[in-house]
Write a protein that binds this DNA or RNA. Structure first.
Length: 562
RNA sequence: UGACCAAUGGUGUAAUGGUAGCACUGCAGAUUUUGGUUCUGCCUGUCUAGGUUCGAGUCCUGGUUGGUCAACCA
């Protein structure tokens, strides 16, 4: 079944530059008119919203052109990769709503890759280099001037074969030798200056264990893995553009199926960071609680925050795909989640910053049950009944002593409607010795209960409330952006993005909520009327619910008055 | 002082040689028992200098600006 949005996407006549390439290939019958993409994460961290862009792109393209998408873990560096990450990545992709056609690992191809390396050695296109890391680095030169050839570059095929086989046997210490492709030390492209294909690493691999002590480099593994899987369009981010000649070189030298590498600009969003290294640092240095801290731009963080898969997919569609560097405004992400949650989230009333409202002319022992709509956007969600009584909790910000004319809420002498209940008129306030308001007094108009003839009377404002005797308390975690500047990397001399962390990104409060919720499953989305969207956190207990604020409601009044 | 890539409103993204459109943001208004939603309107754009063409955001050349590349990372 297609969503309205997906239909729009299909209907639109304009193509992004990748779709244009694919349609051209389809027209020419390239790859037998197949489309086969892949999502190739390295399992060395959790997926973030930038990966979501890539996931939606790769899986979306396959869906659009009746193709396939593999998930392939790029696990060629055993020193950084862990199963924990493999599991989280699979969970996140599926949660986003995608199912891969096949699950592969670059490590599945280690033997084939090794055989191909032997082939290249035999064809004098690869050689074993005994140089030290520093010597190799020095010999490579700099981008503006050519490198120099290694003294080991012209070893005989026999010697190379012998050495490479013994590298695999574990005869040489780590770092003592590498296998290099013999290309061009004078190339203006640094990646073509005899790139390293294999290095010796005595490390335990999460899948192959201790079977190998030589591991292929990304450039030697990625294109061939694509090739083995019959990938047609190998989509990656811009920084791999300079790797493409090498990608092509290996496919040609090996005379194997040659997928087309296409690069697009990675996603950047302001007020956050989007590199695995930085996200890992935030976790390790405990600036956040974990990878799924709701302030993190990780998929697991957004999920815990209350974002829906639909909202993230829609975001990915809306930002588009191009080769231009871009920084997306965080407000677009917020727009997407509000748009989705507005349709789905059940409404409830909760008071986050409470002050007592006493209805003096309402009998102290009386309780009425008011009918409330669960979701005005979806009548099928029905109604519920909520207790109303003599004493209520209301939002402290819904009262103002010296209120401006445009303040449509409570002030002495002014009228306001209590949502789903009566119109009340404020008669006075109680204060403590410090001048803080401890209670607000009012009288209600018994003829204005919702549904009664007089309830249609025009009042400027409507406020939410909960009955003080019936309300329950819940913990509410109010999140704000993790960084207080648009570009966290834009730090003063000697400072880093860590110094730009917003010290007020998390505020924990206790709120009064309605007595009951329709659903209390973790992740259930609610709208606290007039306040924002909240979801139930996994830290909740049967005794006390914990809510995360996903995003506040748009507030045009507050915006103008702060 | 290299190579490669990219330049369209504040932010993204379309226009595939023929009317510069859409979304977000911002502003103004209407509706509203959420200052939400919905609806209406407005603001703001083709980096620059040449060239090709009846016609250039689009093609060509130079410049400018930004990005990427010098891990035995991916």
């Amino acid at each position: 079944m297609k969503t309205a949005n997906e239909n729009n996407k299909t209907d639109k006549t304009s193509l992004n530059f990748i779709e244009a390439i694919i349609e051209e290939d389809l027209k020419n019958g390239k790859n037998d008119s197949r489309v086969h993409t892949r999502f190739p994460p390295e399992p060395n961290g959790y997926l973030h919203i930038g990966h979501a862009k890539s996931i939606c792109l790769n899986f979306g393209l396959a869906q659009k052109y009746n193709g396939k998408t593999n998930i392939r873990f790029d696990d060629t560096n055993p020193t950084k990769e862990e199963v924990e990450y493999v599991d989280s990545i699979k969970e996140d992709v599926q949660w986003l709503g995608f199912q891969w056609d096949a699950e592969y690992y670059a490590s599945d191809y280690f033997e084939q890759l090794y055989q191909w390396a032997i082939q290249l050695i035999k064809e004098e296109k690869a050689y074993v280099d005994d140089s030290s890391q520093e010597e190799i680095s020095k010999g490579r030169g700099v981008p503006t001037s050519p490198g120099i050839e290694s003294p080991y570059r012209n070893r005989s095929v026999e010697e190379n074969l012998d050495l490479f086989q013994r590298m695999r046997q574990g005869e040489f210490p780590e770092g003592s030798r590498v296998l290099r492709a013999k290309i061009d030390m004078a190339s203006p492209n640094m990646h073509m200056r005899d790139p390293i294909m294999y290095r010796i690493l005595y490390a335990h691999h999460h899948r192959t264990g201790n079977e190998w002590c030589i591991y292929p480099m990304y450039d030697y593994a990625h294109g061939q893995s694509d090739s083995i899987e019959g990938i047609t369009h190998s989509i990656c981010t811009l920084e791999f553009e300079v790797h493409r000649p090498l990608y092509d070189w290996f496919c040609k030298a090996l005379r194997i199926h040659h997928p087309q590498q296409i690069e697009f600009a990675r996603l950047n969003i302001n007020y956050t960071v989007m590199s695995k290294r930085k996200l890992l640092q935030l976790v390790q240095e405990k600036h956040v609680s974990s990878w799924d801290d709701p302030r993190m731009p990780t998929i697991s963080g957004l999920r815990r925050r209350g974002y829906t898969p639909e909202s993230i997919r829609n975001f990915a569609d809306t930002i588009g795909v191009a080769k231009r560097e871009n920084v997306i405004d965080i407000s677009l992400l917020e727009f997407c989640v509000r748009e989705d949650l507005n349709k789905k989230a059940l409404r409830t009333m909760a008071v986050l910053d409470p002050v007592k409202l006493i209805i003096d002319n309402y009998p102290a022992d009386k309780v009425e049950y008011m009918t409330a709509v669960n979701n005005p956007e979806n009548p099928k969600d029905g109604v519920r009944n909520i207790a109303f009584s003599h004493e209520l909790w209301i939002e402290r910000s819904d009262f103002m002593e010296d209120a401006p004319k445009k303040f449509f809420r409570l002030s002495i002498g002014r009228e306001v409607r209590l949502k789903y209940a009566y119109i009340i008129k404020c008669t006075g306030i109680d204060k403590d010795e410090n001048g803080n308001i401890t209670a607000i007094h009012c009288d209600y108009d018994p003829q204005t209960r919702s549904g009664m003839p007089d309830s249609g009377r025009k009042v400027k404002g409507t406020i939410h409330w909960v009955s003080a005797t019936h309300a329950k308390t819940a913990e509410v975690r109010l999140f704000d952006r993790l960084f207080h500047v648009p570009n966290p990397d834009d730090a003063d001399e000697g400072k880093t993005f860590i110094d730009n962390i917003n010290p007020d990104s998390l505020k924990i409060i206790n709120a009064y909520t309605e007595a009951e919720f329709l659903h209390t499953d973790v992740l259930s989305n609610y709208q606290f009327e007039r306040m924002g969207y909240f979801c139930i956190d996994k830290d909740s207990t049967p005794e006390k619910l914990v809510f995360n604020r996903t995003v506040s409601l748009r507030d045009t009044w507050a915006k103008k008055h702060t």
